[in-house]
Amino acid sequence: MSYLVIFISAVLVNNIVLMQFLGICPFLGVSRRISTAAGMAGAVAFVLVLATLVTYLVQKMVLDPFGIGYLQTIAFILIIAALVQLVEIILKKVSPSLYQALGIYLPLITTNCAILGVAILTIQKEFNLLEGVVFAFSNAIGFGLALVLFAGIREHLDLMEVPAGLKGTPIALVTAGILAMAFMGFSGLI
């Protein structure tokens, strides 16, 4: 499969948040301001690519040769948790300014199902290593795109009069539904 097809499919056609429902918690949680949304998107992109790379290597070099594929879920979640800790420690030491910007989002990422989801999907789709990394990177862009777009809409939504019952999460969900409808327009692209 060509890399461009993987990219367009992951960013627009099968957008990870709006079409596959992965990573909804941060999508709803940190989308109140564009600046925080962009920070979260950056942190996710960083961890997502790294995690997919490491879990892919572990699957191919440890789990498959020893025939213990059923330990995939346990192994992957531990790798992701350890990786997030590691990134946090290294970032703190190497680049304090980047740590300042991404720091508060890092602990949240362990339980972001987009990370584990993409890691498992990469194995399921039988990508090779480079395709897997492109797939992870494209999904990270797709996540960032959806998050920043949604944050922009929510900033405007704050100024609107919303019926009492719909305030907060409900109106955010309905808005996300309409955004998902807009993304359905891309479905003929591939």
Binding site: M19, L166, P170, V174, A176, M184
Partner: peptide, 15 residues
């Protein structure tokens, strides 16, 4: 489809 999920859950929480 995907949009329906968001919209129905939104209205359920609103109720």
């Amino acid at each position: 489809l995907a949009p329906g999920a968001f919209i129905v859950l939104g209205y359920m929480i609103a109720i």
